[in-house]
Design a protein around this nucleic acid. Structure first.
Length: 921
RNA sequence: GCCUUGGUGGUGGAAUGGUAGACACGAGGGACUUAAAAUCCCUUGGCCAGCAAUGGCUGUGCGGGUUCGAUUCCCGCCCGAGGCACCA
């Protein structure tokens, strides 16, 4: 009987859906295991073969864990808010919801075809009001909370108000925006508006004026992780800096916990390192410089990690956006400074990046006094100092900082070397090593000792203190777009008083045009009656990461109307045991989710503070393009091996009409009208195409669609082949050329159960060799699946099936466990054979065969023995010998002289269970 | 510039201190067949010797080191991929 994958796969997919095979409940008799895929944005192009790579791996792992007796939560959903649907809506007037729903149903169809074991009853869509109710709910909780630095956790804002009323601003150590301190009396005397404004400095979700990434073409602001190389990640439009009032999330308050938590989770080093860099912790000190604009005195606080170099300060620099620029610019310098600020403002982010080498700046006219040595130094303004980091002001030590050095060279400022023997005539000496000089009390100290000594000195003299700085910034949370979660906020007293709207969900209003309004307001301003009790509602919407920040929690309890997740359910499922997705979310989603989860943890809504215990980044699948070579000026095409004999142009050809790099000539003629009468110069009767590895994209004609693979080879072959291609974590090109191999394997596997057309499984006893082959495979599979080496597991299957075929194995004792073993990889064929073996229930909940190591072991092993380099002999030894017996055995061999060639053994090295070597003289 | 990775046949890749190249693709040869498809068998890192069985040398980016033994561990370089980048 032939392996009819089309019939088999359809049959089982239908059965799984009808019987709800993968429906999951909180079964407390079993240990839980939560396997999660990063849910997709349903784009219009559908899935290509690269997308399911991670899904297949996680599905295999889920099915494997079920076989091992775990209660596995394996859900799927859609990250359905986003720019492409909205851009499409702007162009066509088609409501983004329609586009989104259409794309989702196409995705679902494609996913179902591959035979995933998702519990679809738990599906979530971020654009569903029942879902985003809880996104809005979390936002309101953040709006109603502040961060207590002492307790290192978020607390209700009421606690803060009480503390202010009793002890003013110094009563708490809180994460907040800078403001003037106030006493309890002052607080109590504040007007309501003043209190609202003050509290806004403390809220975890707060509204604040800040420099943001503004993208004019998209008409919206973007978060730092949504900008790359000065261009928007979505769309690739230029981005510029602009000061705007925006909703923000106080992610920076969690910097230390986000950093520390990395030590407790099982992620790759590279990913943790990316997050560490993004958080950017640095140890240093803050110091106050007295600065003078004429006779007016102002304190300027700077941050430095190199307090040891304070004797080498020759100037100071302010960020152009710093508030200090205003107060420290002198009358004479005013025009020059204004001109410079104008120049900086006009630049896009991209231009800034392109010109990193060029040094710009302007003198403010003021001077500061170095508190270390009382020296007077000029204060400059330059864009190389960033307003968002540290204090927005620096002390410049050109001798030991390359950026300060470049600036000093350009503007002819003095350079004072501080480390013995360093040469600063050509470049700065940035290394933190050597012996100090020109540095007063530090002279003669090693740099590594001088740094703490300098900070101690600063603290003792009272002009500064130790300080830890983080690079991570608060997340900008507003987007001037339509297709996102509306903010549950309305404004009383004009726009003065933002109030929580708590009748959630606040659903998106219907509009018919999706562009910003003529006066630049977000599209929601077009909605009729976008008000609450006569007060205007917020018109921006939340960014893409809002809906994806807590979706893994919602899967635990997706239909609950009273809570994001029920307490009992949360305590059962806890957090994600295995999370699979792309590395591109390292500094976006994966930071925001951790922050969001920690916040909910602080308020007691979830029981684990890290959401994703283990994370695996699946690699990207690149495209493998094919080329044909058109002979210039003709409609004739030369085969790859002959193309050099002609002058040709390389043309991309659709990979779907090429097989094993051989062009299907008829299909090619039909492919595009201009090739209808194409002629070919063949080699050996075939047209061979050239190839290259490129990004998988429509324009390269190298998109391979999983539907087509399922149609030609079946889902089981697709699943197996994607795993066989190589390690899941690795990026690799898709190459359909090898797929025949795994397809052949499945046919061969099928044939094990048949004799001609008859089902031929016998109840006879299996031979020792057959049992050995089976148990080798079990051992391999257990180890390899746990370590995600699916490609070698597939190889082990192939070897085993080859062996069993050669042994003409038809015994149930072997074939039944084999079917179970293969079921995580190829569930359809496994279920079909399982049913034919006479089982009424699916194998989903049956048990994995026990591994018997002694059955798998070889009785005898051949050990290579190397004699001091050159001579090599082979000795057959019984494996059952222990190391001591092996040594005795070897020494007895010495008597014969056969293995030692007349030399004397001086040393025997026995590595238990592995190998024997001996040294001879 | 900094951080993280990786570098093995014609190709994808095995091997984490112990016979390098498992498994698969491709290629070559053969069997079955009127033929094709399907299936099965053999060869396949390179070089050299031999009619042959076989044997020898060489070989995991390059150069050193540790070890009886290194693709694997250590040091220094070269190249590729990804990330970060005026972060004081």
């Amino acid at each position: 009987m032939e392996y009819d994958f089309r019939r088999i796969e359809k049959k089982w997919q239908k059965k799984w859906a009808e019987e709800g095979t993968f429906k999951t409940t909180e079964d407390k008799t079993k240990p839980k295991y939560y396997v999660l895929d990063m849910f997709p944005y349903p784009s219009g192009a559908g899935l290509h073969v690269g997308h399911p790579l991670g899904y297949i791996a996680s599905d295999i792992y889920s099915r494997y864990k079920r076989l091992k007796g775990f209660n596995v939560l394996h859900p799927m959903g859609y990250d359905a808010f986003g720019l492409p649907a909205e851009q499409y809506a702007i162009q066509t007037g088609q409501h983004p919801e329609i586009t989104t729903v259409n794309n989702i149903s196409r995705y679902r169809q494609q996913l179902d075809q591959i035979g995933f074991s998702y519990d679809w009853d738990r599906e979530v869509r971020t654009c569903d009001p029942k879902y985003y109710k809880w996104t809005q709910w979390a936002f309101l909780k953040m709006f109603g909370s502040w961060y207590d630095n002492n307790l290192q956790k978020a607390r209700p804002i009421q606690v803060l108000e009480e503390a202010f009323a009793k002890g003013g601003s110094s009563a708490v150590d809180a994460a907040c925006n800078e403001h003037d301190p106030f006493t309890a009396e002052q607080w109590n005397a504040f007007s309501e508006k003043e209190k609202v404004d003050m509290l806004m400095n403390y809220r975890i979700a707060y509204q604040g004026e800040t420099s943001v990434n503004w993208c004019p073409q998209l008409g919206t602001v973007l978060a730092n992780d949504e900008v790359k190389d000065g261009l928007s990640v979505r769309g690739g439009f230029p981005v510029m800096q602009r000061k705007m009032k925006q909703w923000q999330l106080r992610v920076s308050a969690y910097a230390e916990r986000l950093l520390e938590g990395l030590d407790r989770i099982d992620w790759t080093d590279s990913l943790k390192e990316m997050q560490r860099n993004w958080i950017g912790k640095s140890y240093g000190c803050e110091a106050v410089f007295k600065c003078y604009n004429g006779d007016e005195e102002h304190d300027v606080t700077i941050f430095t990690t190199r307090a040891d170099t304070m004797f080498g300060v020759t100037f100071m620099v302010l960020a152009p956006e710093s508030d200090l620029v205003e107060v420290l610019t002198t009358q004479e310098q005013r025009p020059a400074v204004d001109e410079y600020l104008e120049y900086v403002k006009k630049k896009t982010e991209r231009e800034r990046l392109a010109e990193t080498k060029s040094v710009t700046g302007v003198f403010s006219g003021s001077f500061g006094v170095n508190p270390m040595n009382g020296k007077r130094v000029p204060i400059w303004i330059s864009e190389y100092v960033l307003a968002g980091y540290g204090t927005g002001a620096i002390m410049a030590v050109p001798a030991h900082d390359s950026r300060d050095y470049a600036f000093a060279k350009k503007f002819n400022l003095p350079i004072i070397p501080l480390i013995e023997g360093c040469d600063v005539s050509e470049e700065s000496f940035d290394a933190k090593e050597g012996r100090m000089m020109n540095s007063g009390f530090m002279d003669g100290m090693e740099v590594k000792d001088a740094i703490p000594a300098a900070i101690d000195y600063v603290e003792k003299r009272g002009f500064g203190h130790r300080k830890v700085n983080y690079r991570i910034r608060d997340a900008i949370f507003s987007r001037q777009r339509y297709w996102g979660e509306p903010f549950p906020i309305y404004y009383k007293d004009g726009m003065a008083k933002p109030m929580p709207f708590d009748k959630l969900p606040l659903t998106l209003p219907e509009i018919t045009e999706f562009k910003p309004t003529e006066n630049g307001e977000p599209p929601l301003a077009r909605a009729k009656d976008w008000t609450y009790e006569g007060c205007p509602l917020e018109t921006s919407t939340m960014p893409g990461f809002a809906g994806s920040s807590a979706y893994y929690l919602r899967y635990m309890d997706p239909h609950d109307d009273n809570a994001l997740v029920d307490k009992d359910k949360d305590e059962y499922w806890r957090n994600v045991d295995l999370y699979i997705g792309g590395t591109e979310h390292a500094t976006g989603h994966l930071i925001y989710s951790r922050f969001w989860n920690k916040f909910l943890y602080d308020l007691g809504y979830v029981c684990e503070d890290e959401p994703f215990k283990k994370l695996i980044n699946q690699g990207m699948i690149q495209g493998r393009s094919n080329f044909v070579y058109r002979i210039v000026g003709t409609n004739k095409f030369a085969s790859y091996g002959l193309k050099d004999q002609y002058e040709t142009t390389e043309i991309h050809v659709d990979v779907n009409i090429v097989r094993n790099d051989r062009l299907d000539l008829e299909a090619f003629k039909k492919w595009r009208p201009e090739f209808a009468d194409a002629e070919f110069v063949l080699e050996n009767g075939e047209y061979v195409c050239g190839w290259a590895i490129e990004k998988m994209s429509k324009s390269m004609y190298n998109v391979v669609n999983p539907d087509l693979i399922c149609e030609t080879y079946g889902a089981d072959t697709l699943r197996l082949y994607e795993m066989f291609l190589g390690p899941v974590e690795q990026s690799k090109p898709w190459d359909t050329n090898g797929i025949d191999g795994v397809n052949r394997f499945l046919k061969k596997f099928w044939r094990l159960f048949f004799n001609g057309d008859d089902f031929a499984v016998t109840d006879e006893k299996a031979s020792p060799e057959e049992l050995k082959a089976l148990h080798k495979l079990i051992g391999k599979e257990e180890g390899d699946i746990e370590s995600f080496s699916f490609n070698t597991t597939v190889s082990a299957f192939m070897i085993t099936v080859n062996d069993l075929t050669a042994m003409k194995c038809h015994e149930r004792e072997i074939l039944e466990p084999l079917t179970i073993l293969i079921s995580p990889f190829c569930p359809h064929i496994a279920e079909e054979l399982w049913a034919m073996l006479g089982h009424n229930e699916t194998i989903t909940y049956s048990h994995f065969p026990d591994f018997n190591a002694s059955l798998a072991a070889e009785d005898n092993a051949t050990y290579p023995v190397s004699f001091n380099g050159k001579m090599r002999f082979t000795v057959d030894l019984p494996k059952s010998l222990n190391p001591k017996e092996v040594e005795e055995h070897i020494r007895s061999l010495e008597q014969t002289g056969k293995y030692t060639n007349g030399h004397q053994i001086v040393k025997v090295i026995v590595v238990p269970g592995k190998i024997v070597n001996f040294v001879i003289k």
